[in-house]
Design a protein around this nucleic acid. Sequence first.
DNA 1: TCGGTCACGTA
DNA 2: CGTACGTGACCGAG
Length: 519
Amino acid sequence: MLAVVVRGGAVGLATPGRSWVGSRDDLAGVADRLVLWSAAGTPLLPHRPRQVWDLGAVHAVLFGGRRGDPAAVWNAVHDLPAPARSDDFSLFDSALSAVEPFSRAVRDDGSLHTDAWRFAPVQDLAALALVVQQRQEARLLALPDPRAAPTGPHLRLTTAWIESAASLLCAELEADGLPFDTVGGTALVAQLIRADDRDARDAPVLELFRGDDVDLRNPLSVRDALTRFGIDVPDTRSHRLEAYRAAHPVVDALLAWRKAERVATTYGYDWIAAHVSGGRLRGEWLSADGGAGRMTASAGLHSLPAELRPAIAADEGYVLVRADLGQVEPRVLAAVSGDRAFAAAAAQDDLYTPVATMLGVDRPTAKIAVLAAMYGQTSGAAGQALKQMDQAYPVALAFLRAAEESGRVGEDLRTHGGRLILTGGGGVGRYTRNAVVQGAAAELFKAWAAAVRNGLAGGRIVLCLHDELLLHVPVAEAGAAVGLLHSALTSTAGHWASGSGVRFVADIAVVQRWSEAKG
DNA sequence: TCGGTCACGTA
DNA sequence: CGTACGTGACCGAG
């Protein structure tokens, strides 16, 4: 284990029993087992290390929440309360370089100064990082390994490496960006918003409202105006207005206007100017949200409308390889709940077919039953299906009920990988019922992504989208990338869900543009 | 200038 | 058939 702290031009290093001041050249040779306070603040990009231990990422697994600053991370493993968050928190601000060599980073009560990262000598921070790593590791090993037939390292230790890898990957995703066809994308935006200025966009819709003084951007105003056409709705969400398309042409016009307005305001020319440069679309990435631990991205990367996806296009001589996990959440439920019957269904290419047979219903009904079970249905329609699910797969359903009960009474719980899900006092039953599935799926996905990252000979992961990976690789590497995606999934499932019997499948396609159909 | 609400895209 | 995220416009309070 080698701890590394980079602050501005200063580099601090530590191994057990020794710490020293080094230089950035020291980063070049080390590919494995780096300990970092945060991959996000460490300029490792040129070296692409294979394996890091990100203290902030592991802290989030052990203790939940969103804090990843050194003082919170240090204090937590010493059973001390988190300090108040520093307003100007910036982990490695290069502008701050004044080091006070006689300052003590650790106070007499054992807590870390909130701004120790700023004033403490970098080699001391590196030494402290190793202390935290050891304590985090001990706490992870104290958690039970939930697998039916554990193989290899303790699952919770694996989770630490995986979450760290995701954090590192996020730093790389931020820097690398998505290949973006700027000319084509700009033309696409122009076509989608049709009119350049706001009044010209509004005019045809206002016309249909026949001069009513309606504010299209004010839902209340729109609702009132629709009432005058005999359309009485509790809100004006598009899925609700969908039913009234035939009632009056104004509904159709309004919905089309909304789509154009959406692109104009969120994904228009300003968006391209702000987030695209040099043929790359970039956003900020977080390796785990505050809830179940999914990856998040800004700049709308995770909610890019399908109509704009043709703009994500491979460079000349490159292809995009898109791969998504099939039916991942029910398969994850089968694996983490230990339900042998459900796992048998999840051993098939299509999980819903054997479920349908088991329940004695058609496939669409089986799908609704499974989803209703996982997400805590509220409407009565799925009630019968749920009862059948409970009879067919009692272990899986009991697992879900237990998660829901934890949330209801305010008892924190952990995902399969060991991430703490905070219930904040209770009353969050549906949330926790979903979080144990969604969160575990996020862990499987990250494990897959990490394996792919380290296995890629050429090219890069350029997008992670919950159950989908997008790779940008040289044409000659496409075949190898497809093979890697499959083999990485097999090996990942082998250790993450070992003994479960669940099969995980990926749908993979080699394309020029993200929008292109799979298969 | 803020937090809340509505709305909508993605998984 | 629910959960979650980020984004933006508008509203009312301060």
